[in-house]
Design a protein around this nucleic acid. Structure first.
Lengths: 306, 306
DNA sequence: AGTACTCTGTAGGTTGTCTTCATGGAATAC
DNA sequence: GTATTCCATGAAGACAACCTACAGAGTACT
């Protein structure tokens, strides 16, 4: 039972095809195929089976793939101890982040880690909740969010660390008739004209929650993804929208009002493959992310800004 | 950080010299030396340092060696799951056992595992307590004993599983004046003429304990290792000796009497390197050993045989 | 001083892994 | 139904890693 082969199976479990594994490990598909073959010869049974024009793991293959993940985690733990022994953690930490969370999380992190041996590479992705797990294969830390629980959908083998709990407020023009209120209820906003997000996007569940609370059918005029565009439209109309509290700039004609009585909070979490989570540099960055998140929450704890 | 190198360091930590590692891994010392060198080049610092005409690990080397042990354990755990998945455990399990313990432990184990895929290779060693740890490098299970605690001296990184608690009785001729007693106290036996064991051998501590209890200087006429020889001498003289209850054949002119009031029990334990302890076949054999030990203890729980 | 032991270095052979190029099957497009 | 595309696999050769063999240097024991 060789480490090499277990690692290969683990990679296959994460990526699902010989070609994908080959690209991820900088080899040709032929090399991967040959390794897979020798792994099966040593195992004495089939670890993959044909499925369509590709392959998928057999039960035996899945078992060994899980073992590969355990081993990778153990190895990463050793490397973390080694890094700690040598002094400073170093290396590149790749972060894939949801833009609306990265906006408030990343600046202090990058500032705080400047001058250390850690290089942080941030890329931003705005994808459906279920795709965050895939991003974890190519990035050390994935900053994701979920409206229903701390753990985003589709993350099973990954480590999940909660970072922030961010209220989702109702955004409106400062001249809007509801702008005078301290906070709002579902009944208050059920009759409004809305800007929503495309169906299936997380924020949509807030509007669904409002709808469920009041029994009303909401009047959704637009379905838009980009928050900046939504802000611009809201500031210049009587439309209202759901926007995250920490990153929405108020003033300039835009106000946020807390929505009580409907589930209107998102959980921002870090999602990582367990082995990557063990790395000292990753843990250092993660700690910075948590600190940044806690700081942001503290600055907003008084409620939405006027 | 390669698995290969960590494994090498772990092996070096266990065996202490390049030559010993080379023999254990069926390579030439030159090969081991070269591997060590590349490991150090990749680590970026010295992992071993000259000591006399050999080498010893540096602090950094020890750290990585521990990591190697952790990894080996994790790998063994994966292999154990794999064996369990495939059905029956198979393979060779090497046991190094203290003869006086193997005598009562091994027969049921070998009988019980006959016909399974597990082959048990037993070898017997009668060594000082501190050398059991060394045997663990070359054997899967070392059956050792200790008079002071369950964990034999010198076992630090090894897993220790208690097997049996065996009383050490006073053996004497059936015609001896003390043979009529149900049990004996230190005061009863302080004046006897003894057969002891060489100084430093475990059983010697029983006599030391008797001596400490009574303040008497014991009359030790002979110092002999082999229990069979001791039995023969005791049966044919007025000398008394300390012998283990489970394996000393009574009848034939030899009787055992319980000694109360002095520490006269030995702890028989299984000592294993943690990674070997994870193997399914090893765990199976270990379970058989425990069952055998429990069975023996039960058969003797009524006290020493007449 | 001589002997024995341990580690290290060099040269050369063996093994294993990868790349290249070509082939064949399975889904999809036309 | 045929063509196209995608994915996996096979054979042959290049390349790198590892090992053995053998010689050399340093340290301990006698």
């Amino acid at each position: 039972m060789e480490y090499r082969h277990l690692e290969l199976l683990r990679e296959f479990a994460d990526r699902g095809s010989v070609t994908a594994v080959a690209e991820a490990t900088y080899r040709t598909p032929s090399a991967v195929s040959q390794q897979l073959k020798t792994a099966q010869r040593e195992a004495g049974m089939a670890l993959v089976e044909p499925a369509g024009r590709g392959l998928r793991l057999t039960g035996a293959g899945r078992l060994l793939a899980e073992g590969g993940a355990d081993l990778a985690t153990a190895l990463a733990r050793v490397e973390a101890r080694w890094d700690a022994f040598r002094g400073e953690p170093t290396g590149v930490v790749r972060i894939a982040a949801l833009p609306s969370a990265a906006t408030f999380l990343m600046p202090p992190v990058l500032r705080g880690l400047g001058g250390t041996g850690i290089e942080v590479e941030v890329s931003d992705y705005d994808v459906a909740e279920a795709e965050y797990a895939d991003l974890a294969a190519d990035n050390d830390i994935v900053v994701a969010h979920s409206l229903t629980s701390v753990r985003p959908a589709g993350t099973r083998g990954e480590s999940v660390v909660p970072l922030a709990r961010e209220p989702l407020d109702v955004a409106m023009n400062a001249a809007h008739e509801l702008a005078g209120r301290d906070h709002l209820t579902p009944a208050d906003v059920a009759g409004c004209a809305w800007i929503g997000v495309p169906v299936g996007y997380p924020f949509d569940t807030v509007l669904e929650s409002v709808s469920a609370e009041t029994g009303a059918d909401l009047d959704i005029r637009q379905r838009i993804r980009d928050n900046r565009l939504i802000e611009a439209l809201v500031a210049d109309s009587d439309l209202v929208a759901i926007l995250p509290r920490f990153t929405t700039p108020t003033g300039g004609g835009l106000v946020l009002r807390e929505l009580r009585g409907a589930s209107s909070v998102r959980h921002v979490s870090a999602v990582m493959r367990p082995d990557r989570a063990e790395r000292l540099s990753v843990r250092t960055v993660l700690e910075a992310l948590r600190a940044s998140a806690a700081d942001t929450e503290r600055r907003h704890e008084a409620g939405p800004p006027a």
